[in-house]
Design a protein around this nucleic acid. Structure first.
Lengths: 343, 343
DNA sequence: TTGTAGGCGTTATCAA
DNA sequence: TTGATAACGCCTACAA
């Protein structure tokens, strides 16, 4: 099945291959009429240029990529849109590339830089721990967004945009304490999680201690393994288990809104009124938290701004050769119905 | 910045390039010791084979791709996992490729077949209307899942797996009618939507008519344009608007669970008790519907099965040269708290 | 078991 | 403004 090549088109048009190439790539020095004619023939014959051959040959290309670990995470959807739009404004192509949980995002990035001649990269998700040595092989500007701190990279061309999960989580639990809660349970990730879950959990511990409360092992509920992620069902089942042990707590802090939703339902089914009998708080600022009944107290991350800043920093580096810059955003404590003051 | 090539490795190892190639591609006829040595050097030097050059040269590759329009749609997340797992079982690589809303999935597919030498494709999302002529250029087996009916393709190697959105939607609204509802409002997509939204809306109309109910323009609420998708917020605001017009309905059918969630909240805020004062039903079977309070009646699509069947059909075509086969799955009417019988 | 050489389809260089 | 031709980095006969 002989696929058509640029040669076939050249023959059909009775021109050289380079002229065809020029027509396709919007080169300046080509007769407009010739170009039009060629483009028409291409259109009619359904010729598809071979990208591999093209990528092999080109030396540069105005494109950036977003490498997302955990696409499907609703938190990222909004960010991606914003970044893509920004890229478009700069007339850059933007490739959205999912990264599997087991894949190494840095390896993937290295490959893509070579293959697609990327000018820059945004890393979304994952926890981005990599050896400095290897990181230095990435010769294009990149921004790690929502997945780590710049300090941990120690490499030029590296920038990070993030929310301080530790501090924000602390803020939230601190709020619960101030509301008078002393027995605050938590739903958190397994010990194997080194990502945001861990940071948020540590913020929880710190806040308790700051209020003179000794964290109680019996009030800490961890997801099992990496298999169950931050799903609503996980939160529901974990809370069911917690309640089955007749544990008494007046507040529950879930390290993700999805978990909090599941928790609310479990409490509801147990006849416990969320808000009045037991406070519940989540983290992320997902849409659902606002519309759940009761609406759920959470830490809202300024998604739009984070994404904008991510893109801006990246393009400042690419276009103006600016130094990598890092920013930490404040989350916003959004108090809602699920944490009515305890009496 | 001279990137390393297979030649550099060959030199370092004092062997020919073909030997290096053999080592990398698990070829049989190579001395195990030589191979090990080469692999070690590659590892140490951080050499990354150029994928473009490779793709340009190879004539075939055991890989399939999933082209997803609207990744981020939680409904697809589960399906993707299943399909990827199936591919793995067959020792096939599986590329997950997002397709932008404005992109033509068929063009993308054509490109990728050429570039990556795909053996098969799964199309997810979108509405997949394409000219037969162009469709015939796609010379590999493909399955259109959840985005159209095989009858509409009229091309060999084309299979479709889907749920009959029209019939299922009809089933749901029929149920509402049997519960005694006569004034059933609906939240549906804009007229520009030719995808599932349209089918579900038509199922709604048909069900009403079958019960001798004349659809009432005043009870039909459409999203504005394509800009607001099936988000919770859209459902919330649309319902707010509906209520502002003092329209009386005893039941509300939203063509997506997300819309239904937003509707529930809007009703709640208006002091209308969902279930008792007004029934609400959605469509999709999203996780949230089960955990919302009240839990939401819906049509659950058998995600797992759909995905399994999709993969099975595809690999039957690829591996056994089977004819394209199409299947329509039954959705399941899941009655929950949001549709208590009207008194 | 290994090495050499030719070609995959494109773009870039250079001469016309 | 055009056309011929040499790379791009790899795989794969084929020869050794």
């Amino acid at each position: 099945m002989g696929t058509m090549t640029i040669r076939d088109i050249a023959k059909k048009c009775k021109v050289g291959v380079s002229t065809v190439s020029r027509a396709m790539n919007n080169h300046p020095d080509i007769n407009p009429e010739t170009k039009e004619m060629i483009l028409k023939v291409i259109e009619e014959s359904g010729y598809i240029p071979n990208k591999s051959a093209r990528n092999l040959k080109i030396t540069e290309s105005d494109t950036v990529a977003i490498l997302v670990k955990g696409i499907g995470n609703p938190f990222f959807s909004g960010m991606i849109d914003v970044i893509q739009k920004k890229a478009q404004q700069h007339s850059y192509a933007c490739i959205l590339q999912p990264v599997e949980p087991f894949e190494n995002e840095l390896d993937k990035a290295l490959e893509m830089v070579q293959e697609k001649k990327l000018k820059g990269i945004v890393f979304l998700g994952g926890n981005f721990r990599h050896h400095r040595e290897k990181l230095q092989k990435l010769h294009v500007p990149f921004v790690v967004s929502t997945a780590g701190r710049a300090e941990d990279f120690g490499v030029p061309m590296a920038a990070a945009v993030s929310v301080d999960d530790f501090a924000e989580s602390h803020k939230l639990v601190d709020y619960l304490c101030r509301q008078g809660h002393r027995r605050i349970a938590t739903l958190t990730s397994a010990d194997t999680d080194l990502s945001v879950g861990k940071l948020r959990f540590e913020g929880y511990l710190k806040a308790l201690r700051d209020h003179g409360i000794q964290p109680d092992e019996n009030l800490i509920f961890k997801l099992r393994g990496d298999s169950d992620h931050f799903s609503i069902t996980s939160g529901y089942e974990l809370t069911k288990r917690a309640l089955a042990q007749h544990r008494d707590f007046t507040a529950l802090f879930a390290v993700a809104d999805t978990l909090a939703v599941g928790a609310c339902r479990a409490l509801y089914e147990a006849g416990i009124r969320v808000g009045r009998d037991c406070a519940v708080a989540g983290y992320d600022g997902l849409e659902i938290g606002q519309y759940y009944s009761p609406s759920i107290t959470t830490i809202r991350q300024p998604v739009e701004e984070i994404a904008k800043e991510t893109a801006d920093i990246l393009f400042d580096m690419i276009l103006d050769g600016k130094e990598p810059e890092s920013r930490t955003f404040q989350g916003e404590l959004v108090v809602r119905e699920s944490t009515e003051p305890a009496e």
